[in-house]
Simulated assay, not measured.
Amino acid sequence: MTGAVQARFLADGRRLHLHHGPIDLIIDAKGPGREVALTAAVDRFQNVLSELAGELDLLRQPVGPELTGPVSRRMRVAVAPFVPVFVTPMAAVAGSVADEILGVMVAAGELRTAYVNNGGDVALHMATGEELVAQIADGLSDRAVLRAGDGVRGVATSGWRGRSQSLGIADSVTVLSPTAAAADAAATLIANAVDLPGHPAIRRCPAREISPDSDLGARLVTVEVGPLGQRDIDRALDAGLAFAGEVADKGLIRAARLSLQGHVRIAGDMPGLEIRETERLDA
């Protein structure tokens, strides 16, 4: 069902690609411990999917009892602060896997910088004085320059156009957090909050019709968003911004960038953000 674990370097000879079933990681690191760190990543990756599969039924349910596997526990910890909002640990799966692999890398070897990119949800390591640049991947050219002292170690993006299902209509929500797991969970829920319930330009269908084993079950997920007027765009973004502000005030995220049809809102303090193009894409 899941095939064999694949590990290879990409054409640039530097970035490591790890693939197993639905998990697809791109990894890089700099520092004297690079080789041993990458070896540790490959070794740890061998068992990640089987560990998750063993608790999958629980992971697809709203937050409940304690879980056993280290990645599963990361997932539960990341989503628990958002209860009573509906959320399952699956909202943090990509970020939690990235955190787990990065953790073994940093423990294995001395690194100046490192990242584990799990389909756009990224765990980051920066030693003192180092920095990394995070591109905002929604068709705009914004980016955030992250420095070691910022306390940001996770970046995640969610939205109805992404690889995961969304209850909202955000084209993208990018979140900066202390961990990738926290960023992943928050991006999912903030993207859900960017919404216009009942709007005729939005088409939805039950999640299980798209993915029979979806943790969202019969909940309606967005499959199409037609052109919206300025008032509707503002209303949807303001709803998402209000929720993101609450999350930031609780210290769960550092910042969030919300995008809908070429319009952007920023919640919290996004360090090093360089907004280069935020006008309407269809202008």
Score class of each variant (00 low, 15 high):
6 Q>P: 00
9 F>N: 04
11 A>L: 09
14 R>F: 13
16 L>M: 06
22 P>V: 03
24 D>P: 00
27 I>C: 01
28 D>H: 12
29 A>E: 08
34 R>P: 04
36 V>Y: 03
40 A>Y: 09
49 L>H: 15
50 S>K: 05
54 G>N: 14
54 G>L: 04
60 R>N: 14
67 L>I: 10
68 T>Y: 06
72 S>W: 01
76 R>K: 15
80 A>K: 06
83 V>Q: 13
86 F>A: 12
89 P>R: 00
90 M>D: 01
93 V>I: 13
98 A>G: 02
109 G>R: 05
114 A>N: 10
115 Y>P: 03
116 V>W: 08
120 G>D: 10
123 A>H: 09
125 H>Q: 06
125 H>N: 05
126 M>V: 08
130 E>Q: 15
131 E>F: 12
133 V>M: 15
133 V>W: 08
140 L>G: 15
154 G>V: 04
157 T>L: 05
164 S>T: 13
167 L>Y: 08
167 L>F: 11
169 I>G: 07
172 S>M: 04
172 S>W: 04
174 T>Y: 09
175 V>G: 06
178 P>N: 11
179 T>W: 06
181 A>Q: 10
181 A>F: 10
181 A>G: 15
183 A>L: 05
189 L>A: 06
194 V>M: 10
203 R>W: 02
203 R>L: 13
207 A>V: 03
207 A>H: 07
211 S>G: 03
211 S>F: 05
213 D>Y: 09
215 D>K: 00
216 L>I: 07
225 V>C: 07
228 L>M: 11
242 A>N: 09
250 K>L: 13
251 G>C: 11
270 M>N: 08
277 E>W: 12
280 R>G: 14
282 D>K: 10
283 A>H: 13
